[in-house]
Write a protein that binds this DNA or RNA. Sequence first.
DNA 1: TAATGCACCTGTGGGC
DNA 2: TGCCCACAGGTGCATT
Length: 278
Amino acid sequence: MPELPEVETVRRGLAALVIGKTIEKITVSLPRIIRTPDDVRQFCMMLEGYAIDAVERRGKYLLLSIGPHLLVSHLRMEGRYGFYHREDPVEKHTHVIFHFTDGTELRYKDVRQFGTMDILPQGRHQELPGLATLGPEPLDRSFTPEVFIRALRARRSGKIKALLLDQSLVAGLGNIYVDEVLFQSGIHPEASGPELSDRQIVALHRAIVAVLTQSVELGGSSVKSYVNGYGQEGGMQHQLNVYGREDQPCPNCGTLIVKTRLGGRGTHFCPTCQPLHD
DNA sequence: TAATGCACCTGTGGGC
DNA sequence: TGCCCACAGGTGCATT
């Protein structure tokens, strides 16, 4: 499940592999992936003949600068990019292929078909609703404890787990890393976000930056199907303290990790290290 | 206005 | 062995 570290790892891989390559042709075998423009033929025509100039990231979105256009790609649950040569067999669940003029190909695979691609004019990414409302980048210098305290206090209510999953509060966190940062900061997932103390929010801020930084350095977590542009797994899954560790001892105190459902999401925490009330 | 529930999807694993 | 069902979860939309 690609979250910020996984998308950043994909971005770095793609930047090294496809920048400067010219798109000769695009094959779309699952039109549902293409959201805008409506017409898949138009999508292809808008990008064919142009080179990929840059690969950037905002939250969990990949932003590819292609001529006058910005291709916005969201991997959702299991989307992945792979770099191939023309003669390589096309694997199952490959939905979009960017054929380059040098015989190489960038292929988009997505078993669950949840991923999306949108084309926007360069510099007008605010026209895509999900992108326009993103909160601050957690690994940017501008994301300070003070900024985070203000943003959290501005919410009138809400459990902290749900708030951290809200991309307009802070961009890039998903279910796995939310569970991890709450564990690291000793906060119960059902605690009220706006009612956290300054000390708790500062601890949470520190945990968000630390966990995401470590995960980016390790190439993300391969909890299910995630691999980077080279087909390699990340290393962060070996560092997870609570996610996927139901009924296993907490690394801090030995209490068994509990799994519940919160807001429809599997939620893992240590009931001793993360008490609901101090 | 905010919280909640559901749909979108397919592979996997457990139970029978 | 095969079938059925629950589950996994990011996002957008509908409902409460």
